[in-house]
């Protein structure tokens, strides 16, 4: 088993244990030996060129379809227990095997895609609303408003995000909603800083001056014209952040702060599958782990591609 997903960061011994039975190193063709910050290098290895990003887009489309169609397409209920097939390897009945309780891993991973994809989406929505608002306000007002907002975001930025979330969860209790909202706030400073930097460049362009000369109010200029013009750059950035958000949420679930059983969130699945590794069955960890890794890599590949296109193609 390889530590291909940083979800396993907390438990290195788990990663080392069963290099044993069958099957070639699982997920995609790339070397999976980069923990944590190496995700961008993984993206670089797959190649952010047209082929790579097309593959990534197709893969993500399949994942999204699976999530939407899970109730129709999944062969079993995600929580259907059948101890007869406990820890079953891949068989025609259970294409990706089954976990300790005999739950079908394919079905669970398909249903799990729902929480695992909606989670980062809500997270980013919260983070973008807060971050873009703060960043735009700072860039637009400059002066002391900018100074205050920038110092506040700097302090929040410097505070470890995961620690912040754990604190919030400790106060408000476990659960996906708390985790998503807390992570959203933790991501806001990153987005605020990015928004501020691109908004300052954009505000310096005379077309913004032209709106002011026309007599348009500051709020209208920012909401109707400035932010829409930042959208192109922001979307590219958010796509990369989506992968990171998914990873962070999975980490939280893995640590027990996010999704709670019997949910089939991928991070939680990895956590629950740990015990199976000792019994020589790696599929319960491998399947959700690979799902996380592949989705995150895909988002990175597309994000890098978007950033490249923004860099080379100027309007």
């Amino acid at each position: 088993m390889k530590p291909d997903s940083p979800v396993l960061r907390g438990e290195p011994d788990v990663g080392d244990a069963p290099s044993g039975p069958g099957q070639a190193p699982a997920p995609p063709g790339q070397a999976p030996a980069f923990p944590g910050r190496g995700r961008r290098r993984i993206a670089a290895l797959v190649g952010a060129g047209p082929v790579g990003s097309r593959l990534a887009s197709v893969f993500l489309a399949v994942v999204v379809l699976c999530a939407i169609l899970a109730p129709l397409a999944a062969p079993y209920r995600p929580d259907a227990i059948d101890f007869a097939v406990s820890l079953s390897p891949a068989t025609p009945e259970h294409l990706l095997g089954a976990d300790q309780s005999g739950r079908d891993l394919l079905s669970r991973v398909m249903y799990g895609a729902r929480t695992s994809l909606i989670g980062p989406l809500v997270l980013l929505a919260v983070a973008s609303v807060v971050g873009v608002a703060i960043g735009t306000l700072a860039a637009w007002s400059r002066g002391w408003v900018d100074a205050v907002l920038s110092r506040v975001t700097d302090v929040m930025y410097a505070f470890p995000g995961l620690l912040f979330v754990v604190l919030v969860v400790a106060v408000f209790g476990n659960g996906m909603t708390t985790a998503v909202l807390a992570l959203g706030l933790a991501y806001a400073p990153t987005i605020a800083k990015y928004t501020r930097s691109i908004a300052i460049t954009e505000c310096a362009k005379p077309y913004i001056d032209a709106y002011r000369v026309q007599g348009m109010g500051s709020l209208a200029i920012c909401v109707r014209h400035l932010i829409p013009n930042l959208a192109r750059s922001l979307v590219g950035y958010l796509v990369v952040l989506f992968g990171e958000g998914l990873m962070s949420l999975a980490t939280l679930s893995f640590l027990g702060f996010g999704a709670q059983p019997p949910s089939s969130d991928w991070g939680l699945m990895v956590k629950e599958g740990q015990a199976a590794i000792v019994q020589g069955a790696f599929l319960p960890v491998l399947v959700p782990g690979a799902a996380i890794a592949l989705v995150v890599v895909s988002f990175n590949v597309i994000g890098v591609r978007l950033a490249d296109r923004l860099g080379t193609r100027r309007l």
Binding site: Y207, G215, N229
Partner: peptide, 26 residues
């Protein structure tokens, strides 16, 4: 206030130097 802003706008308008950046690209 809106009325004062619009009145000022009707008094003086401006055309900027570089038409490549003085128009909203969208």
């Amino acid at each position: 206030g809106r009325a004062a802003r619009l009145r000022r706008a009707r008094e003086i308008q401006m055309v900027f130097q570089d038409p490549y950046v003085s128009l909203d690209p969208r």
